[in-house]
Amino acid sequence: MNHKKLSVNHLLGIKYLNISDVNLIFETADFFKELINRPIKKVPTLRDITIANLFFENSTRTKLSFELAQKRLSADIINFSASQSSIKKGETLIDTVKNILAMKVDMIVIRHPNPGTANFLSKNIDSCVINAGDGTHEHPTQALLDAYSLKEKFSNLENRNILIVGDIMHSRVALSNIFLLKMLGANVKLCAPRSLIPHHIESLGVSFESDFKKAIKWCDAVNMLRVQNERMNQNYFPSIHEYKNLYGLNLSLLKSINRNIVILHPGPINRGVEITSDVADSEHSIILDQVQNGVAVRMAIIYLLASKIIVPK
């Protein structure tokens, strides 16, 4: 690894990164992955950095993963969740964040239901911002850990066929994955009911196939997304039962393609809907690898961004 730095001061989305940034994050994550498998998994690097985790939306995996990554790096952390905050009393986002920053916080990790929140914050506050998911826009750390996990399997994603199945319309994971997989040279195909595919998605250089049984024969890896009922304000398909039959991944379908493919899922899983338990827990699944890699990749991102925060003289 050379003396490289990230080209950005915030992680707002994959579309703001270049290939050197991604490679640097992956190289750094390799070191942290070795480190978090030691008997003592903590390094003192970020002992003078304070990070605020601002979660305006529910999260289990991402929040825990960020917290663990920060603790492994010895950062001080404060956690904020919208349900227990003064947001309920009418405080604006910018006021909330400025008050938190007045407590000498160096870095903000934010999840928010509104697309563009992380960008907005980065332009209005003097602190490093990491986007942990902004509405249906981007979820860059998830895409990075997905691609990192795929690279562990394939070593190189150039010309690999990656299929993303499910609720593309409401998925920030899908958008970030498309940007990153295309950057790494993979072929990306989307598969879902047409009603769950955004218009003009082909302009991102991806193809579309509505027949899941046909699409899965094409791929080397499949990323099964959850149907995001909480973001749906109308019915996008007739019934969950029909969705499961047409777009659910089960063992008999997996066996029918006579080939080993890698299965990813960003979680949380709706077992029995987009994926059956026997497939989610099978040897083809790297779902738990994704979770472990998530900590290493987030450590790398936090470390690399923190290295750009100037120490006051």
Binding site: L35, V43, T45, L46, A306, V311
Partner: peptide, 9 residues
């Protein structure tokens, strides 16, 4: 590397 005291310096 991750144990050095000159990170960010």
């Amino acid at each position: 590397t991750f144990f050095r005291d000159d990170f960010r310096r």
